[in-house]
Design a protein around this nucleic acid. Structure first.
Length: 199
DNA sequence: TACTAGATCGGCT
DNA sequence: GCCGATCTAGTAG
């Protein structure tokens, strides 16, 4: 039942993909170890109508990955400090992507802890804030600019299918941390999950 | 608890 | 030069 998500999944409309990514398993292979986490919070960015999307102003060297066909990883650097991790969606030239805002660690906890805190024994508080924010996820998974444009059908980073989440367990709100198009209700997260960034 | 500032890269005007 | 799809530590209340 745990199959790698393929092209058919990613090339659909961005808000559809965003909703369905909830509950799926994000996986990174490092040194033969499987590091994985359940996706619990995402935001959709659609370059055609959404001023907050990096792709809104058209193609540039920075956002070119977003204009590819769905199924790639788009990583960008922000505030001089943090990386954020996106899944490119839609057809070629759509400029649409889903920002991963929060995940729940499943395996490879030591790897994640070591990257984030430089230690492997965490307090409960540290565990809960290990991956509950876009910058934190990238730090914990050690995702950097090097991973920008990686193909999710490859073997290093990919997403596994999972049982579909019941609609009643998904919450939909406005997005976080942006100034333009702030009113678009394109943030989705799993209700009652402890690892979402805010509620 | 609530707000503010600092960190500090790189794309864009 | 400016400022951002962020996070953390620090101070004030």
């Amino acid at each position: 039942m745990q199959e790698k998500l393929g092209n058919k999944f990613y090339t659909r409309e961005v808000t559809t993909v965003a909703k369905e990514l909830l509950g799926k398993t994000f996986v990174k292979f490092v040194d033969g170890e499987t590091v994985s986490a359940k996706i619990v919070e995402v935001e959709a960015y659609d370059g055609s109508v959404d001023e907050a999307a990096h792709s809104f102003g058209g193609l540039t060297t920075r956002n070119e990955v977003m204009f590819n066909e769905g199924g790639l990883l788009y990583v960008y650097f922000i505030y001089g400090t943090h990386y954020c991790c996106n899944i490119v969606t839609g057809k070629e030239n759509d400029g649409a992507a889903v920002l991963i805002r929060a995940v729940e660690p499943l395996t490879g906890l030591d790897y994640l802890s070591e990257n984030r805190y430089g230690k492997t024994r965490l307090t409960e508080k540290e565990l809960l804030s290990l991956t509950n924010g876009p910058g934190k996820i990238c730090k914990a998974f050690n995702i950097t600019k090097k991973h920008n444009g990686i193909d999710l059908s490859g073997d290093e980073i990919f997403i596994l299918d999972a049982k579909k989440v019941d609609k009643s367990r998904i919450a939909q709100t406005v997005r976080v941390g942006i100034k333009k198009s702030a009113e678009l209700p394109w943030r989705f997260y799993l209700k009652d999950n402890l690892f979402v960034s805010k509620r």
